[in-house]
């Protein structure tokens, strides 16, 4: 596995006011791989994830130190365009959050705000995204119904389709299954394995079985620090640091 490095952080720290939530994290993410970020609640894994597409910028009083690279370019450098970054680094949230629009308009939203007006192009790309998110068959006959009428699992796949529609290179998933039942979860996991052929995927999860099932690389966070990172099968069988082992075997967290 010697894939190209798609994203990387170098000595990145994050502050909420005076509180240092993340301390000096250096981590690399390879193309076409799934990287899982695990750790107990409050360890900073979600904050870290949200720093990768500058979503934390909208929270007042926060601050980033260090560098985050996308294809070797520092996304926090001055003059970088946040909108452009978020187009290239898509994100799916913990709770499915479709807009109160129709299914079609929900997926088309990202395209429209990015200036796609042509109707047939919109239709093609919405269909392609829904297919890529493995939800096309379930919704193709009800594209004009409200997105809120879908089940939780369908809503989450819709949100993935919505993120895919604008053609991102990286996909950030913030505990995408925590609000879903086991069957819906299984569908999303299958989808993740499928999607990694085309995307670089970073997923935050507190479900260790999920990390073991879907990821190629696992990183363990604790108290705002990166404790250990390794290939998933090694992490879950022979972790080299005691804290990791304790967490994985369920001794704390």
């Amino acid at each position: 596995m010697s894939n190209k490095i798609k994203m990387a952080t170098r000595n990145m720290s994050f502050y909420y006011g005076d509180f240092k939530a993340i301390e000096g994290i250096t981590l690399e993410f390879s193309e076409n791989q799934v990287t899982a970020l695990i750790g107990p609640s409050g360890c900073g894994k979600s904050t870290f994830l949200r720093s990768l597409n500058r979503m934390n910028d909208i929270i007042p009083g926060t601050r980033v130190e260090g560098d985050v690279f996308l294809d070797g370019e520092n996304i926090y450098a001055s003059g970088m365009d946040m909108v452009e970054i978020r187009k290239r680094v898509g994100m799916v949230f913990q709770k499915p959050n479709p807009f109160p629009k129709t299914i079609f308009n929900d997926v088309a939203y990202g395209l429209r705000v990015n200036g796609v007006k042509n109707k047939s192009e919109l239709q093609d790309r919405v269909e392609a995204s829904l297919k890529a998110a493995a939800i096309w068959d379930e919704v193709k006959d009800r594209l004009n119904e409200s997105a809120l009428s879908l089940s939780g699992g369908q809503q989450q796949r819709l949100c993935i389709a919505r993120a895919l529609a604008i053609g991102p290179e990286v996909l950030l998933l913030d505990e995408p299954c925590s609000a879903l039942d086991p069957i819906a979860t299984q569908k999303i996991e299958e989808l993740i394995r499928e999607l990694k052929k085309n995307y670089t995927i970073i997923i935050v999860t507190h479900n260790m079985q999920q990390a073991a099932r879907v990821s190629d690389v696992t990183a363990f966070f604790y108290m705002g620090r990166l404790i250990e990172v390794n290939k998933t099968e090694i992490m879950f069988t022979k972790p080299s640091i005691k804290q990791t082992e304790d967490y994985i075997t369920g001794r704390f967290g």
Binding site: N53, M55, I58, F93, Y109, G110, V113, R162
Partner: peptide
Amino acid sequence: QTYREASLALGGTRWQTIYRV
């Protein structure tokens, strides 16, 4: 807040987010 986040994460600008969502 999730509506705003979703829109921003899709590359919507602040004004697009306010106006459309």
